[in-house]
Amino acid sequence: MSRIPVHTTDNAPAASQETLRHLEKRFGKVLNIHGEMAHSPVVLAVYAAVNEAIAEHGTFDARTREAIALAVGAVDDCTYCQSAHTIGAKNAGFTEAETVAIRRGVADVEPRLAALLEVVRETAGEVGEVSDTTWDKALAAGWTDTELTESFVHVAANLYTNYFNHLARTDLDLPAAPALDA
């Protein structure tokens, strides 16, 4: 059970209402995570600002962003994010089986994406540390140092929501991602 009240656009603090309305429009409803973040306007504002910066300046396509989110959600064992990004990844063209494989870290995806996901997993799982071997493998696969640097903000944005969900114990209001042990 969630520790934090889930607000609606009507009962959220005034400073959160506009952002919450925007997110409701984008996702078709107020997701539990957003309604909980709205409880503290600064939490919701930071989430929105990071996502706005990614939308404005980011260079990764939806497929790459969702693969990153699945990998980070799996590293951090965030049920909510794995569920949300399974939906997003399927909308971006992945099959359900591919979403499970990405989460397991064994996806048979194109080698270039696989090399980026290695960087992402190490970034998330090793407190920002990435081995020279992993970094060089990603460069050899065709990623630029600028793109590898950009991957950091995607990891950080996903860590933000993962950690928030762990803190809040956000109740799942989306279809659950397939189990990894299946």
Results as ranks from 00 to 15, higher is better:
I87K: 10
V42Y: 11
A49R: 01
L139Q: 08
H85E: 11
E126I: 04
R121D: 03
S2N: 11
N91A: 15
D181P: 05
D77T: 12
V130F: 03
E96V: 09
T144C: 04
A182F: 04
V43Y: 03
A114P: 02
V42A: 13
I54P: 00
A53G: 11
H166D: 07
P13C: 06
A15N: 05
R112F: 11
L117G: 00
A138K: 03
L159A: 09
D171P: 10
A138M: 07
S131E: 07
A124W: 00
A115E: 04
W143G: 01
D76S: 13
G73Q: 00
T64A: 13
E98D: 12
W143K: 07
T149S: 15
A140I: 07
F27Q: 04
D10A: 14
A38R: 04
G128K: 02
G105S: 13
D76N: 13
F164V: 07
E147Y: 05
K29V: 03
A12P: 07
A101M: 09
D10M: 12
P175Y: 09
T170H: 03
A168V: 03
A97T: 15
V153Y: 02
V127Y: 13
A89Y: 05
N91R: 14
V106S: 12
F27V: 08
G128L: 05
A101R: 09
T86N: 12
T99P: 09
T99G: 11
G125Y: 00
A92Y: 08
H39G: 13
L139M: 10
G105I: 03
S2L: 14
H154G: 06
V6I: 14
T170W: 09
A38F: 03
R63L: 15
R21D: 01
V155R: 06
A176H: 02
H22C: 12
E98P: 06
D132Q: 13
A124K: 01
R103H: 02
Y80P: 05
A115T: 06
A176G: 07
A92W: 05
A14L: 10
A156C: 08
A89Q: 00
S83V: 06
F152G: 14
A141M: 10
D171N: 08
P5M: 13
I54E: 01
H34L: 12
A14S: 14
N11T: 04
D108Y: 02
T170K: 05
F152Y: 09
V130I: 04
P178V: 05
R21L: 04
S83P: 04
A38D: 10
L180H: 04
G125V: 06
A107N: 05
S40Q: 15
D76I: 03
K25Y: 02
E147A: 13
T149F: 14
E36S: 12
G105Y: 01
V120Y: 00
E110R: 10
I87F: 08
V50H: 00
D171C: 11
H39Y: 13
E36I: 01
L31M: 15
E118F: 02
L116D: 07
T19D: 01
H39R: 14
I102E: 06
A74C: 00
D76G: 08
K25M: 10
V155A: 03
E147H: 07
A84G: 12
E52P: 00
V130P: 05
R3L: 15
A84K: 10
V130C: 08
A138R: 06
E110G: 15
